[in-house]
């Protein structure tokens, strides 16, 4: 398998001094779930937000290095950010359904990109809601406001919203942090389906979730990539002492 994304010596610092990345280099495989885990403030979310340039909108003091997606450096200022974000979708920790109906939420991105044909939109709604494992729960009330759904349902609608754009990469930033175990299970199961078509990068909300879902795992501590390995190996026989201590719950 080849690397979809290649991160080379990426460093970044926010203006307010919180979180940062220091010389991170790693390759991320296509059609696999790559998990970025570690204690808070380790730079996991920052890295995610670099991958779709959402950091452009925050105050960043300094950054260096490059990120290649399919060989193209996406940190280049000339890159079309809007097109990039359609290719690299993102799901956030707190589900943020936009203030509109379920259907409108799902087709929002498509509409923004200029798709108007109803048949295409309907098709996308069904396909992506099914992929996000929520179709059966909402198919009869697509015109209800998305805010009226439960947290777990909202999060899967948000996932569907991203999938509707048929991205190549899906970023998930602690997507299950506010969800009950059943909803969490559904989202995790959906991820295993997703990786057949997409490259999935997940910041899990617990070590256990990391162990459950990871094909590949990267351990971040205070902005540094400590260890990066196959998921199974990482959670059974980690090479680094720090990784082992964290996985065993000795700190964090």
């Amino acid at each position: 398998m080849n690397n979809k994304i290649l991160i080379e010596n990426l460093s970044l610092q926010y203006s307010d001094g919180t979180e940062s990345l220091r010389g991170v280099s790693m390759g991320i495989r296509q059609n696999a779930v790559t998990v970025l885990f570690g204690p808070a403030g380790g730079g996991k979310s920052t890295l995610l937000r670099c991958l779709n340039r959402l950091n452009d909108l925050t105050e960043v003091r300094a950054s260096s290095g490059q990120i290649l997606i399919d060989g193209e450096n996406i940190l280049d200022p000339k890159v079309d950010v809007v097109a990039l974000r359609r290719k690299v979708g993102m799901v956030f920790a707190r589900p943020v359904p936009l203030p509109m109906s379920i259907r409108e939420n799902v087709i929002y991105g498509l509409e923004m990109s200029g798709e108007k044909r109803k048949s295409k939109l309907d098709e996308a709604v069904e396909r992506s809601l099914k992929l996000a494992a929520i179709w059966d729960e909402v198919k009869d009330r697509l015109n209800d406001p998305a805010n009226a759904l439960s947290g777990g349902q909202q999060q899967r609608v948000c996932l569907a919203r991203v999938l509707a754009l048929q991205p190549e990469i899906v970023l998930l930033d602690e997507p299950t942090s506010g969800l009950d175990p059943i909803s969490t299970g559904k989202v995790e199961a959906a991820l295993q389906e997703l990786k057949k078509e997409y490259t999935v990068i997940l910041v899990p909300h617990s070590v256990q979730q990391a162990a459950r879902t990871a094909d590949h795992a990267a351990f971040f501590l205070q902005g540094e990539l400590i260890e990066y390995d196959d998921g199974k190996k990482m959670f059974t026989t980690p090479k680094e002492k720090k990784t082992e201590d964290y996985i065993m719950g000795r700190f964090g």
Partner: peptide, 10 residues
């Protein structure tokens, strides 16, 4: 809200 929309390529 804004980040959600931006992340969708709006």
């Amino acid at each position: 809200y804004r980040e959600g929309a931006w992340a969708l390529g709006a």
